[in-house]
Design a protein around this nucleic acid. Structure first.
Length: 606
RNA sequence: CGGGGCGUAGCGCAGCUUGGUAGCGCACCAGCUUUGGGAGCUGGGGGCCCCGGGUUCAAGUCCCGGCGCCCCGACCA
């Protein structure tokens, strides 16, 4: 260790916000090269390789084959699938000396599909599971949290090719199962949640979320039935939206009783429809303003949001989404409803220019030339308030369909605290944050059709292959492991991912007897297959102890005073602090047993 | 891209208001002491003060322009 690069830091670098990022810098796993781009130092690289190895074992166990595809990919296949445009600015692009377009691969569907198209022609060659582990590139709008949301990252992606839909489902289930094993073995607390397939395309998808307070993804789950979904995906109970709404005057304690009746959250009684009226509302631009100024409950207001919907052909359309004032418009649901490639909020200036509407005073009444979509909840509302599409005015006593008629009512809002589980419809949804460490998709024939990846079936007919794609963010997984396994002193590596299982530490490197015994124990442990580091640095004991805690070696073998006094060395568990004293001769064997036990615990009985 | 903040030694920062020899802590090098929880003393090395222009006798400091980075938001496998 005295001759190795393990640069630990006592102080926390200002650039790091979350614990895993801070610890990865402080314990010497990574160093920043550019925003979202990192050097993996020896210590960090070892952790990465441990995760990779676990992934390889579980992929291979399912009959997958590893290969390696390039990081630089030509544009043509991307143009064929339409993703050369769809990926937009998230893709790093470059040209060769002849002016030909290339990209740094953000993912490899196009590449692998082209490969399989050229090499596989018969149903007899299927199913096929192919994967690789390599760098991926996404020019993130905002890289952050170190390796967690980086622009360059290591990813395992596997692609399945099947002859039939049943085959695809089988491959999907295999991978789902393999992913559970991978994350179990990494010692992560995670949930598999239903997800929107996003830019990859296809439908039917699960995300594997490592639970963490600083996770970027919000997930909704139900303790009663096990339902779990990304909030952007989670449906609101169809046909019953609003029924179990939490009214603003319901005391939170009442919610704990879990039943809608007990919580006093029954549907609003039908009210007589009052006459539509335009009222002056100077300087009222937000829902909060409306509530304050007009003194109405927020549940009697509606907000109208303008979005651009990007169509598959590259053109875009301005549409309006209407949700209750305290709700959040779910852009993913809107996107899926419209069959759009992407939806994003329009800017105030654009709305004024294209719809002649000031965004702070927008409403669905009298909106011309723009398609309006409303959340189902709005359909049940009576006598509500909305903007009058005129600066300084709102309508009150609005009622549909009398005052406006959206093109369609649909589930368009983000699920909220207190919503009923869309699956079992018994319990309320709980929310948690997670780090997305993996995702599995069914791609069906999206890419095989676009790229002509076909095979000949038993009847001699040509058919497109049924594809699936399955990713694991390797570097992100390492960060998630640290996020979940640390204390105020440093990292608490699970044995399976630990860069080293143990560190052997002579307390005083000038004590030749200690050094000699330490070297001996180190050599024996290495011989026994225990990943061991020898801390032979000429540092004070305190420094070495602090570094060992920071770097999180699961076991520390301390060779110090007790050697001279009692002829024993100390084996200390980083996680529990438990200490055993054993003779130097027994140390290596004891540690090996401990390491094997820890690995067996996490690997299950396989 | 919008809002906020910051660019001074490897890291963390002060100095800028009110212009006048570039500093502190940690780290680093040498020596002595020390050696079971981030040692002590002595000596030492290290700077394009983000870049460019301007004002001035004089700019880290003031003015103009640019660049970069971080945070919040929007966005995202």
């Amino acid at each position: 260790m005295s001759q190795a690069l393990f640069p630990t830091m006592r102080e926390t670098p200002a650039e790091a916000e979350i614990t895993s990022h801070q610890l990865m810098l402080r314990a010497g796993l990574i160093r920043r090269v550019a925003p979202g781009i990192y050097n993996l130092l020896p210590f960090g690289f070892r952790a990465v390789k441990k995760v990779e190895q676990i992934v390889r074992e579980e992929m291979d166990r399912k009959g997958a084959q590893e290969l390696l595809m390039p990081v630089i990919l030509p544009a043509e296949p991307w143009i064929e699938t339409g993703r050369w445009t769809a990926y937009g600015d998230d893709m790093f692009r470059l040209k060769d000396r002849h002016g030909k377009d290339f990209c740094l691969a953000p993912t490899h569907e196009e590449c692998i599909t082209t490969l399989v198209r050229n090499e596989v022609t018969s149903y007899r060659q299927l199913p096929l599971l192919l994967y690789h582990i390599t760098n991926k590139y996404r020019d993130e709008v905002r890289p952050r949290f170190g390796v967690m949301r980086a622009r360059e990252f290591i990813m395992k992606d596997l692609y399945s090719f099947d002859a039939t839909v049943e085959g695809l489902l089988e491959s999907y289930n295999k991978m789902y199962d393999a992913y559970c094993k991978v994350f179990d073995r990494c010692g992560l607390v995670y949930r598999a949640v239903e997800a929107d397939p996003g830019a990859i395309g296809g439908s039917g998808s699960h995300e594997f979320m490592a639970l963490a307070d600083y996770g970027e993804a919000l997930i909704a789950y139900c303790d009663a039935c096990g339902f779990a979904a990304n909030v952007e995906k989670a449906e609101v109970v169809p046909g019953q939206a609003g029924l179990y709404d939490v009214h603003p005057n319901v005391h939170p304690k009442m919610l704990e009783q879990k039943t809608p009746e007990a919580a006093g959250t029954v549907a609003p009684k039908p009210q007589r429809r009052k006459a539509l009226k335009k009222v002056a509302t100077p300087n009222v631009h937000t829902i909060q303003d409306v509530v304050d100024y007009l003194g109405v409950p927020v549940t009697d207001t509606v907000k109208t949001l303008f979005c651009w919907a990007l169509r598959p052909d590259g053109t875009k359309e301005l549409v309006a989404g209407v949700v209750r004032g305290d709700r959040e418009l779910n852009l993913v649901k809107l996107k899926n409803l419209l069959g759009a490639v992407e939806t994003y909020l329009a800017e105030a200036g654009e709305v004024l220019q294209h719809a002649s509407v000031p965004v702070g005073s927008a409403g669905p009444v009298g909106l011309r030339g723009i398609r309006v979509f409303a959340d189902v909840e709005v359909e049940a509302m009576t006598n509500f308030v909305c903007g009058a599409n005129e600066e300084g005015y709102h309508y009150i006593n609005v009622n549909a369909p009398r005052d406006f008629q959206p093109e369609k009512y649909a589930d368009l809002r983000v699920v909220a605290q207190g919503d009923v589980c869309p699956r079992c419809r018994k319990e309320r949804l709980e929310f948690a944050r997670g780090i997305e460490v993996g995702q599995v998709f069914k791609l069906w024939t999206k890419y095989s059709e676009a790229l002509g990846c076909t095979f000949t079936d038993e009847k001699g007919e040509k058919r497109p292959m049924q594809m699936g794609c399955y990713g694991i963010g390797i570097t992100r997984t390492v960060a998630a492991v640290i996020e979940q396994n640390h204390d105020d002193k440093g990292i608490l590596w699970p044995m399976s991912v630990a860069p080293y299982h143990a560190v052997v530490m002579p307390v005083n490197s000038k004590d030749s007897r200690q050094m000699e015994v330490a070297r001996q124990v180190y050599a024996e442990m290495t011989d026994l297959g225990v990943d061991t580091l020898l801390d032979d640095r000429d540092e004070r004991a305190g420094v070495k102890f602090m570094d060992a805690d920071l770097m999180g070696f699961p076991y520390r073998i301390t060779v110090g005073q007790t050697l001279a006094e009692k002829g024993v060395v100390e084996i200390r568990s980083r996680r529990t602090g438990h200490v055993d004293f054993v003779s130097p001769e027994a140390a290596a064997g004891t540690v090996r047993t401990l390491v094997e036990k820890a690995l067996a615990d996490v690997n299950g009985s396989k």
